[in-house]
Computed example of a mutant assay.
Amino acid sequence: MRLAALYKSMGNLWNAVDVVDIPGAISPEKLLDCRKTLFGRFYTNPALNFTAFVNTMKKAWRTDKFTCAMLEPGFFSFSFQLEAEKQRVLASGPWSFSSHLLVLKQCEPDTPEFCYDFNHCDFWVNFIGLPYGRVTYDVVEEIASKLGVVVEVKLEEKGNNSYKVGKARVMMPLANPLKTGVLVNLDSKRLLVEFKYERLPYYCYSCGKIGHYVTKCAKIPYKESGLE
């Protein structure tokens, strides 16, 4: 009832002359610009040198064919010359600067830049301890789903033989503690499958959350963590 009343009161704030219709489709040129643009926000708020940050990302991304604009402290737009370069950068993440996680999101033509969700990030996760006979697409996907939304699954050969290991790219909620593994029930035994995260930024070994070190943990004081 309160929500309905709020909507009703808000409706009185607008007159017909205050509504703007934007007809027609977005031009192909503008759509291409959107496809070549990423928005990025640091999950934490580091004090950084903007020039050093951009130069570091050029080296990390192995390209200088983009421009970067700071929309507000810790929030940036990246405009690439080539869509393929943008896609390579987006697919190769996550990325960090001075161990601070930079969350990247694809620009959407009809979404304002301040309406993106930067509380989730894609991580590649390897699964250590999964028996060779169980390394299948479906099994890896099922295990990865315990972490978040599964974006992609890969079965890769290890070395020069046919032995394959599985990993998955998972969109994970950053507010949750990192999971270290899962228990897998087989017909005759139970095994621990451990998670190994790629390109993991700094996080707390005490509470398991990204964004602070164990010495700065507000949930579990350092002296009480047993890690001192």
Rank of each mutant, 00 (worst) to 15 (best):
A91H: 09
A91L: 09
A91Y: 05
S92F: 04
S92Q: 11
S92W: 03
S92C: 06
S92L: 04
G93E: 00
G93Q: 00
G93R: 00
G93L: 03
G93C: 04
P94W: 04
W95S: 01
W95H: 11
W95V: 02
S96P: 05
S96F: 05
F97I: 06
F97A: 05
F97P: 02
S98Q: 15
S98N: 14
S98Y: 05
S99H: 11
S99L: 11
S99R: 14
S99W: 13
S99N: 13
S99M: 10
S99A: 12
H100K: 06
H100T: 06
H100D: 11
L101A: 07
L101V: 06
L101D: 02
L101R: 02
L101P: 02
L101Q: 03
L102S: 04
V103G: 00
L104N: 01
L104F: 12
L104T: 01
L104D: 02
K105S: 09
K105Y: 06
K105T: 11
K105W: 05
Q106I: 05
Q106G: 06
Q106H: 09
C107H: 11
C107Q: 12
C107P: 06
C107F: 08
E108L: 15
E108R: 15
E108T: 12
E108S: 13
P109Y: 12
P109N: 08
P109F: 11
P109K: 08
P109T: 07
D110I: 12
D110K: 15
D110Q: 14
P112F: 14
P112I: 12
P112A: 12
P112E: 11
E113H: 15
E113K: 08
E113D: 09
E113Y: 15
F114G: 03
F114C: 10
C115N: 10
C115P: 01
C115R: 10
C115W: 07
Y116Q: 01
Y116L: 00
Y116G: 00
Y116F: 14
Y116N: 01
D117C: 08
D117H: 07
D117F: 07
D117R: 04
F118T: 07
F118Q: 06
N119H: 11
N119V: 03
H120K: 15
C121Y: 03
C121K: 03
C121F: 05
C121T: 08
C121P: 02
D122W: 02
D122K: 07
D122N: 14
D122T: 11
F123H: 08
F123S: 06
F123I: 11
W124F: 07
W124Q: 01
V125N: 06
V125A: 07
N126S: 13
N126L: 10
F127S: 06
F127D: 04
F127M: 14
F127R: 05
F127I: 08
I128F: 07
G129T: 10
G129C: 11
G129Y: 10
G129F: 11
G129P: 10
L130P: 08
L130A: 09
